[in-house]
C-alpha cells in the first residue's frame, strides 16, 4: 500500500472509518506525520458528524400510481344497443290480444267451434303461443287483430291475410343477407322445422289478421350474441358491426311493413 498526495484521501477515509488493518493504520499515521498540512484534514474528519433522517413528504404521490383503467369494452356497448333495439322491436309488435273468454264476451254470437275452422287457414290466423316462446330459435308470432262486423266478411279477410303475408322471396334484402351469411343460412334452414313443431292456435273469433313474424330478427340476434361471445374483449369486429346494423334494418323494415299493411287494411275497412 503506497500512500501518495494523490490518493491519501482514500486511505484517510478508510483509516477514519476503521476499515484498515494494523499495517494500513501504521502506513497512514506515518504518511500523516510526514505531511502535517494533510494531517489537519485527517484531524478534521469526524465520522460521527452525520446527517439525520428528516421527513419530507413527497407531494402528489398518488399521481405516481398506476391502476388498471376501468373502461367498458366497446363490444358491450354494441351488445347493449342490439338488445335495446331487439326489445324495442318486440315491444312495438307485441300484440294487445284478448283472451278467448274476453272475445266470447264481446262477440258471443260469432264464436264458433275451433274444429270447424278450415285447416288451411289455421297457419295464418295465430296469436302468441307459449309453447313457441319456449323454443329458443323460434320467433314470436303475433297477431294484430281488427274485429270484423260480420261472419260473411270473415272468409274474405282470411284470404286477404294470405295475400298480405310477404313471402321470403319478396324480401330481397333480408334474403340476400341471410344467404350471404353461413350462420344465418343454417339458422334459416332450421327455422321451418322449428316453426312446424309449434302448435298453431286457432282463433275462434272471425278476425282479420296481420301476421308479423320475427323469425329473422330473432335469428339475427342469435347470431349477434354468438358473435359477441367470440369477440375478444375490447375489440369489435367489422362483422359484428354489420350484424348490428342488419338487426336494426330488419326491425325497421318490419315496422314499416306492419304500419303500411295495417294502415291499408284500416283504410279498406273504412271504405266498406
Amino acid at each position: 500500500m503506497t500512500i501518495t498526495t494523490d490518493n491519501y484521501e482514500l486511505y484517510f477515509y478508510q483509516y477514519a472509518e476503521g476499515e484498515l488493518d494494523a499495517a494500513g493504520r501504521e502506513a497512514v499515521e506515518a504518511f500523516a506525520s510526514q505531511h502535517p498540512e494533510l494531517a489537519e484534514e485527517l484531524a478534521l474528519y469526524d465520522p460521527d458528524l452525520k446527517l439525520t433522517e428528516s421527513h419530507i413528504p413527497c407531494p402528489n404521490k398518488e399521481s405516481l400510481l398506476h391502476h388498471d383503467r376501468q373502461v367498458l369494452p366497446l363490444w358491450r356497448w354494441v351488445a347493449a344497443a342490439c338488445l335495446v333495439g331487439l326489445l324495442g322491436g318486440v315491444w312495438l309488435f307485441w300484440p294487445v290480444s284478448q283472451t278467448p273468454q274476453q272475445l266470447a264476451a264481446l262477440h258471443p254470437a260469432e264464436v264458433s267451434n275451433p274444429s270447424t275452422q278450415p285447416k288451411g287457414e289455421a297457419d295464418t290466423v295465430e296469436k302468441t303461443d307459449p309453447s313457441i316462446l319456449s323454443k329458443p330459435r323460434l320467433a314470436v308470432r303475433t297477431v294484430r287483430k281488427v274485429s270484423m262486423p260480420s261472419v260473411t266478411e270473415e272468409r274474405q279477410s282470411v284470404a286477404d291475410v294470405a295475400e298480405l303475408q310477404m313471402p321470403v322471396e319478396d324480401q330481397p334484402t333480408i334474403q340476400s343477407e341471410i344467404s350471404a351469411d353461413p350462420m344465418l343460412q343454417s339458422a334459416n334452414e332450421s327455422a321451418p322445422q322449428l316453426l312446424a313443431s309449434a302448435e298453431p292456435v286457432a282463433v275462434e273469433e272471425p278476425t282479420k289478421t296481420l301476421v308479423i313474424e320475427y323469425t329473422d330478427i330473432v335469428l339475427a340476434s342469435n347470431v349477434v350474441v354468438e358473435e359477441v361471445d367470440r369477440v375478444e374483449e375490447g375489440k369489435v369486429s367489422t362483422r359484428l358491426r354489420n350484424l348490428r346494423s342488419r338487426v336494426s334494418n330488419t326491425i325497421r323494415d318490419y315496422a314499416y311493413q306492419a304500419y303500411a299493411e295495417t294502415r291499408g287494411e284500416l283504410l279498406a275497412l273504412a271504405d266498406r
Binding site: 484521501e9 482514500l10 477515509y13 478508510q14 477514519a16 484534514e41 478534521l44 474528519y45 465520522p47 458528524l49
Partner: peptide
C-alpha cells in the same frame, strides 16, 4: 465514493 465522502465530511 470514499474520496468524495472524505472531502465532504472535512
Amino acid at each position: 465514493v470514499s474520496v468524495y465522502l472524505f472531502r465532504a465530511r472535512v
